[in-house]
Amino acid sequence: MSWLTIIILIILIVFIIGTIIHMYNNLIELRNRVKNSYSQIDVQLKRRNDLIPNLVETVKGYAAHEKGVLEEVTKARTGVMNASGVEEVSAADNQLTGALKTLFAVAENYPELKANSNFQELQGELSETEDKIAYARQFYNDVVLKYNNACQKFPSSLLAKMFGFKEEIFFEAPAEEKAVPKVEF
């Protein structure tokens, strides 16, 4: 074997090893981004969960006979706090969102509550937090898409299988939120 052949083989081996290392590191980086983006959703859900008791107490003072609605919000909040994993958190979060919609619908019946500055401030903060949750979900799904693509595309799919990288689950809206609303005049 000539020196030129040996040098070419060494360069080829170094290139292959470098490519494998790069693909592996890319999979690690993407997996960590998925975890980080999920944590961002978690942070916003916690912020919303921290606002809810204040909101419930404010409404309680005005709408004492709406006890069932307030209990449903509290129960749904507890469900979010105790949930783990994307699917469980997503389901609990959807339940809480529905309970909050009901709470705000009830608040419409109490003009003095709607005029209360504390209620308005809490409602504004909650609305802002909902926007942040929506953005965090979108970001999470974007990162999951990149990660899942890396796990499925050749040749990184070979490394993904070899090292146990598993596809992640997307955050999805429940079926009732995907339905086209019926508008009547």
Results as ranks from 00 to 15, higher is better:
115 A>Y: 10
68 G>A: 05
105 A>D: 08
137 R>D: 04
27 L>S: 05
159 L>H: 03
9 L>A: 10
54 N>C: 09
169 I>P: 00
2 S>F: 02
151 C>A: 10
145 L>T: 13
145 L>E: 06
125 E>P: 01
100 L>V: 07
92 A>G: 05
70 L>W: 05
185 F>W: 14
67 K>N: 05
147 Y>N: 02
125 E>S: 14
59 V>E: 07
97 T>M: 09
141 N>V: 07
119 F>V: 12
172 E>Q: 15
152 Q>L: 06
108 E>C: 04
56 V>D: 01
116 N>A: 05
63 A>L: 01
68 G>D: 11
110 Y>P: 09
68 G>R: 03
96 L>V: 08
158 L>C: 01
27 L>C: 09
63 A>K: 06
98 G>Q: 09
72 E>F: 06
174 P>N: 12
150 A>P: 06
179 A>P: 04
161 K>D: 05
64 A>N: 12
147 Y>G: 03
160 A>K: 06
184 E>S: 10
162 M>Y: 10
154 F>P: 00
142 D>H: 09
88 E>F: 07
176 E>F: 14
23 M>V: 01
134 A>Q: 10
120 Q>T: 09
52 I>S: 08
175 A>S: 12
90 S>V: 07
34 V>E: 03
85 G>E: 09
94 N>M: 07
57 E>Y: 08
15 F>C: 12
92 A>F: 12
91 A>S: 13
70 L>H: 06
38 Y>N: 15
49 N>Y: 13
121 E>G: 10
20 I>V: 15
100 L>S: 07
175 A>M: 05
124 G>P: 00
120 Q>F: 11
63 A>N: 07
171 F>W: 14
81 M>I: 15
37 S>W: 05
130 E>C: 07
146 K>A: 06
50 D>Q: 14
124 G>M: 06
80 V>Y: 12
161 K>I: 00
95 Q>M: 14
32 N>Y: 00
162 M>C: 03
100 L>D: 12
22 H>G: 10
26 N>I: 02
84 S>V: 12
95 Q>V: 15
